[in-house]
């Protein structure tokens, strides 16, 4: 009786751990690959910029932006942070946003536009979460400058 219960508990714990620990595929595909490499990332970010310029909360920050240049920089940056073969050559995040006085609410509005774009492009939720996880630490360098 005791042994059965112990085995059940061990199996239960193992199952819980198996569910909680992320699966690691043998050939570790980067998030860059999973997002469809540069074409996939470009589609998501071009759509995101489309949502941003229509987003009354933050559109004014982009009123005078060179949209194709901005899209190029965003693609390079996301390609780089997701493990793709790109280098980001633009200014540092803090320098690029100096004097813009972007608030945390503005930052979150952009994250929501990114989520909207990822949903539109049918990016699976786990990939969405990982990408947002990589971009979340930008809050500090980008806001209140």
């Amino acid at each position: 009786m005791h042994t059965v219960r112990r085995i059940t508990m061990v199996l239960g714990a193992a199952l819980l751990i198996a569910v909680l620990i992320p699966c690691r595929p043998a050939a570790a595909a980067t998030l860059y690959d999973q997002l469809g490499q540069k074409p996939g990332i470009t589609k998501v970010l071009v759509d995101m910029v489309g949502f941003i310029v229509d987003d009354g909360r933050i559109a004014h920050y982009f009123a005078h932006a060179d949209v194709p240049h901005l899209e190029g920089e965003l693609v390079d940056q996301v390609c780089y942070v997701t493990g793709g073969p790109c280098t980001y050559t633009g200014k540092s995040m803090a320098a690029a946003h100096q004097g813009m006085h972007i608030t945390e609410a503005d930052f979150n509005a952009l994250v929501e536009d990114l989520e909207k774009s990822m949903n539109k492009n049918e990016v699976p939720i786990p990939l969405q979460n990982r990408l947002i996880g990589l971009l979340a630490p930008l809050l500090g360098p980008v806001t209140y400058k």
Partner: peptide, 11 residues
């Protein structure tokens, strides 16, 4: 909060 921390789901 671990974004994507539980097999891709937020934990």
């Amino acid at each position: 909060v671990f974004l994507g921390g539980a097999g891709g789901l937020n934990l």
